[in-house]
Design a protein around this nucleic acid. Structure first.
Lengths: 237, 237
DNA sequence: TTCCAGCTGTGACATCAGTCACATGCACCC
DNA sequence: GGGTGCATGTGACTGATGTCACAGCTGGAA
């Protein structure tokens, strides 16, 4: 219902900025644009579900998309959150299988849908596009391997500390102390991004605060002692 | 020292059987073969280490290769074990980064090394090869997502049961009971394949036997009650 | 305002995972 | 045969993880 196509907006600039399509000529972008279907999603809406046959890939135009696995018990583990300019599900398009995980809109979002057939045709016509896809996919694979590493070797405390550090890094390079970062909308969401449950997030945040590394303020965190946080994020042995 | 090139053997048949190179003409295979460097490894020898700059990809000709992550505390988590005909490290070749995990020979093994440059050239000249690489990589990504799912939602008991079921599946489709499967060389190795330590493998194997699902016999297991094992492999809720 | 829904913080608790220590068993080599 | 080295099996224990229950807070709707 909320996935009504809209035709009045110009989606060209979006496509040109997507890493895997950079380097295409005007004409090629136009070709792609003609076939890309814009779709709008409201916050929380499902884009596709794990196990569904893969019909095509998506490019994020605005908003953010959560890629996640869910357990039969209702828990979720977020694999990545992608913002404007990111491509989603480039990979399952190729191996013919179903989507390996589900995707949902975090906030209100607009995506461009490119069908499997069109994408294939584009890749065959432009080998460099395929190579770029491989580069993007490489980054994705690295992230997954990193998640596995964290899950099998570290504790919730470690993962929470690294998560905060990652936020701080994005936030800017103000060398010294006092970096302010914004947490995900809820502890539940944060928990599913680091592979645990909300109670442990709450407890560990409090503990880090008690240890003087940070200052909680609702959904914001002021990082007071970067060094200590870094230590806490490293596996003990 | 054990990585002495050998030139007397004909490696052509191997290359032709590798999924990502299937469909190439005789001439193209010959081109590739000329540039592929055979290398031999003894059991346990390291092929490449996590973090090293990626110089090229490998094709397994004989033996088996373990891809794994290791923690600072000495624990390891095996991401995959690849046998003859598999390609290894196809992905990091493309994104310019370092190897995301380490690789070592399980048994004595022969690999064909293809340099980054040669592989790139081949992909540019043959877009279908690139597409096949993407298919292979897709499978790899699915496996990684599966590992993450198991790690974050299930217990050691579940993972051990699924592991045994996977072995049983490979072993053959003899519908009824009494499937015999071979375990990895040591419980330590099995442990690092399902993300735990050897003691828990030992205990859980014993427990599954006590519950009548299987019969231990050194490094072999006779699966007595497939249904019960399947139940044990499913997340409880 | 009041009410309600959803989120947060926390204590109590059950279970799981991992470590340490040690005894046993097995193969291989001298 | 005896010793050495390596893998296994087990018990005891510690700490991490996750569940349940409940109380308090907040923001929005009626």
């Amino acid at each position: 219902m909320a996935t009504v196509p809209e035709t009045k907006v110009n989606h060209g600039p979006t496509l040109a900025k997507v890493p895997i399509f950079s380097g295409l000529t005007e004409g090629e972008l136009a070709f792609l644009l003609q076939r890309a279907i814009p779709r709008r999603y409201v916050a929380g809406e499902i884009v596709f579900g794990e196990g569904e046959p893969c019909l095509g890939m998506y490019v994020v135009e605005s908003g953010h998309i959560r890629i996640f696995k869910s357990s039969s018990g209702g828990r979720e583990h977020v694999l990545s959150v992608d913002g404007p300019g990111s491509s989603v599900a480039e990979l399952p398009v190729f191996d013919g299988g179903s989507y390996p995980a589900s995707a949902a809109a975090v906030d209100d979002a607009t995506l461009l849908f490119v069908s499997k057939q069109d994408f294939h045709a584009l890749c065959l016509a432009h080998p460099q596009v395929t190579l770029k896809v491989l580069r993007v996919v490489g980054a994705r694979l690295r992230r997954l391997v990193g998640i596995i590493e964290e899950l099998s070797f570290t504790t919730v405390r470690h993962r929470l500390a690294s998560f905060l550090l990652r936020l701080a890094q994005k936030e800017g390079k103000r060398a010294s102390e006092g970096i302010q970062v914004a947490l995900p909308a809820s502890n539940q969401e944060l928990a599913s991004q680091i592979g645990t449950v909300r109670e442990l997030v709450s407890r560990n945040l409090s503990r880090l605060q008690a240890e003087g590394m940070l200052q909680l303020d609702g959904r914001h965190v002021l990082i007071l002692d970067l060094k200590a946080l870094e230590e806490a994020s490293q596996a003990s042995e």
